[in-house]
């Protein structure tokens, strides 16, 4: 990969990576750091990375970086999120906000697989390469994530009725 191709990757994938991180972490500041670190690593290894595999490579680096950050802040995040679900649920007045709230409560693997699938359109194999799972595991995780979101939305609708 040359400099031109690297810059092309920045233009094409930086926004998607940023949204993917924000969706999973809900922290734009951390997302910006992760995106920056991701492209720095790509620049260092640009001679060994081909343009065809650059997208999966970038999302894999971003995902691993995100997992590291999440693990560091795991306790802090759990303490913040505890007990606020019920109260916050009333703040969302449309379906998208309900879904986002449900996604935020998904486990990391389900959340990552679902966001990679819906945001960037990755197939099961690609998601498996990024997250380190098999295609069947990816499919199961996505299925469980959708089922959780569906049930979450169904509960809110019931409560609103």
């Amino acid at each position: 990969m040359n400099t031109q191709e690297y810059n092309e990757c920045v233009k094409q994938y930086s926004d998607g990576i940023f949204r993917f991180i924000v969706k999973n972490m809900r922290d734009e500041f951390e997302a910006e750091n992760i995106v920056q670190n991701t492209f720095e690593k790509l620049w260092v290894r640009k001679d060994t990375v081909e343009m065809k595999t650059a997208k999966a490579y970038l999302f894999k680096i971003a995902y691993n970086n995100m997992i590291d950050v999440i693990r560091k802040n795991k306790k802090h995040t759990n303490l913040e999120s505890a007990g606020h679900v019920a109260s916050e649920s009333y703040e969302y007045d449309n379906l998208i906000e309900y879904v986002n709230k449900a996604v935020s409560q998904l486990p990391e693997k389900q959340k990552s697989a679902l966001t990679l699938r819906d945001f960037e359109g990755h197939d099961y194999r690609s998601i498996g390469e990024i997250t380190g799972m098999s295609e069947s595991q990816v499919k199961v995780n996505i299925f469980r994530a959708r089922k959780y979101i569906k049930e979450y939305i169904n509960k809110l609708e019931v409560m609103m009725l």
């Binding site: 040359n2 400099t3 031109q4 690297y6 810059n7 920045v10 233009k11 930086s14 926004d15 998607g16 990576i17 940023f18 949204r19 924000v22 969706k23 997302a31 910006e32 995106v35 920056q36 492209f39 620049w43 379906l95 998208i96 879904v99 996604v103 679902l114 966001t115 819906d118 945001f119 994530a145 959708r146 089922k147 979101i149 569906k150 939305i153 169904n154």
Partner: peptide
């Protein structure tokens, strides 16, 4: 309808603003 609502829609307004800082000049 509930199943279709599980599809996540990316917010196109959410963009990375530090994009220019990542670009490299060709030597």
């Amino acid at each position: 309808k509930l199943v279709k609502s599980t599809i996540l829609i990316a917010d196109k307004e959410v963009t990375y603003y530090g994009k220019e800082s990542l670009l490299k000049r060709e030597l």
